[in-house]
């Protein structure tokens, strides 16, 4: 996969333009009171902060265009799933053996 090329197309509004922090604000009314829950998330893998293109909905479920047909109950589930499905995108492969490359989605 070493010669894969970044296409660098001017598409999407996440890429390059945002940092790695994701802010979520959930607001609702309860018992006649206006409630707001604000949170800021940052996901680090092997100590490196990563942009995983996710958002947290009003119901607390998490979605990402990296796994677009799924809504996760927790951010932990989402991060595990993304790491599993993009094994080559999170730092160098483990030492000792190239193995056969399966690409993504396997």
């Amino acid at each position: 996969m070493t010669d894969d090329t970044h296409l660098g197309l001017p598409v999407g509004d996440h890429d390059m333009s945002h940092g790695t922090q994701v802010t979520s604000v959930r607001s609702f009314d309860h018992g006649g009171k206006a409630v707001e829950i604000a949170a800021t998330y940052e996901v680090k893998v092997n100590g490196v902060a990563r942009q995983l293109h996710f958002s947290v909905g009003q119901d607390g479920k998490v979605t990402s265009h990296l796994r677009p047909y799924v809504a996760y109950d927790s951010l932990v589930d989402m991060v595990k799933d993304i790491i599993d499905h993009y094994p080559d995108d999170f730092g160098p492969a483990p030492q000792g053996g190239h193995g056969d490359h399966h690409g993504h989605g396997g």
């Binding site: 996969m1 894969d4 090329t5 970044h6 296409l7 660098g8 197309l9 598409v11 999407g12 890429d15 990563r50 942009q51 995983l52 293109h53 265009h65 990296l66 993304i82 993009y86 995108d89 490359h101 399966h102 690409g103 993504h104 989605g105 396997g106």
Partner: peptide
């Protein structure tokens, strides 16, 4: 489509 954007690759279909 990867975490860091759109990439040109060469591989079989999964």
């Amino acid at each position: 489509l990867r975490p860091s954007g759109l990439f040109l690759v060469e591989r079989g279909l999964n």
